[in-house]
Amino acid sequence: MEQFLLVTLNGLTLAAVYFLVASGLTLIFGLMRVITLAHGTSYLLGGYIGYVIVRETGNWALGALGAALAVGLLGLVIHQLLIRKFQDDDMRVALITLGVALIGTDLMLATFGGTATQVAFPAALQIGVNVPGVGQYPLIRLMILGISIVVGILLSLFINRTRFGSIVRAGVDDSQMTAATGVNVRIVFGAIFFLGSALAGFAGVVGGTLFPLLPGQDGTYLLFSLVVVIVGGMGSIPGAAIGAVLVGLVSQYTLVIAPTYALVVTFALMVVVLAIRPQGIMGRAV
C-alpha cells in the first residue's frame, strides 16, 4: 500500500512536468490548428537557458523567468518569419517546425555538448519531507507538483476569465468570424505562440531541475507532449492535465510491473484512447 501510494505520487509529479510542456502545445493547437514539432526543442532550450542563468546568478526563479521569456520571444520570431504565411496549411507548418527542430537540436549539441547537465537548486531544498502514508518524499518533487497546479489554474483563469481569453476561445471556435468582429487575429496568434513557447521554456527549467538536460530529451518531451495532448484532446487545457496524469501514472505503474515495457505500455494507452475516442478524452469532435 505504501509502495502503491509512493508510485502514485511519483506518477503525479512526473505528470506535472508533462502537463507544463503539453499545455503550451495544446494552447497553440487550440487556437491555430497547427502543431509545432519544435516544441521539444523549446523545452530543451529553455532548460539550457535556465541552467546558464542559474549557474551565473544562483537564482532559480530568475532562471525560470528568463528561460520562459527568451524561448517565448524566439517562438514569436519563428512564428513571424516562418509560420505566419502558411498558417492555413497545417501540414506545412508541422514540417517547417520539424526543420527548426532539426537545426535547434544540432546547434544545442554544438553549444552545450553531449553530456548531461541539470539546473541547480538550493541544497536546503534537497531534502525529503514526511508525507502521510508514504514516508520520506523528495521535497523538490512536491514543489514541482505545486508549481504545475498553480500554472494550470492560472492558465484556466486566463482562458476563462479575461478578455484576451475570451478572444482566444472565440478564435478556437471560429477564427474567421472572430476576425470579422474586428479583433486583430494576427496579434492574438502571435501572442499565443509566444505564450505556448514560453510555457515550453519554463517547463524546460522545471523539468531540467528534476531530470537531466541532454540531446535527445527534446525528442522525448516532444513525443510525450504529443501523447498527452492526443490522449487528453487537442486544444483543451483540462484535457492536457488529464492526459498528463494518465500518462504519468501509467508509465510509473508499468515501471513497477514490467519495467522493460514501460514506454510501450504508455504509448499503448494512446492507441486505446484513440480507438475508442479519436478526438481524445476532452477533445471536441471535429
Partner: peptide
C-alpha cells in the same frame, strides 16, 4: 490529417 501525423510519429517510437 494532423492527428494522423502525430499518431504515426508516436507509433514509430513505440
Amino acid at each position: 490529417a494532423i492527428y494522423f501525423l502525430m499518431l504515426t510519429l508516436a507509433l514509430g517510437q513505440v
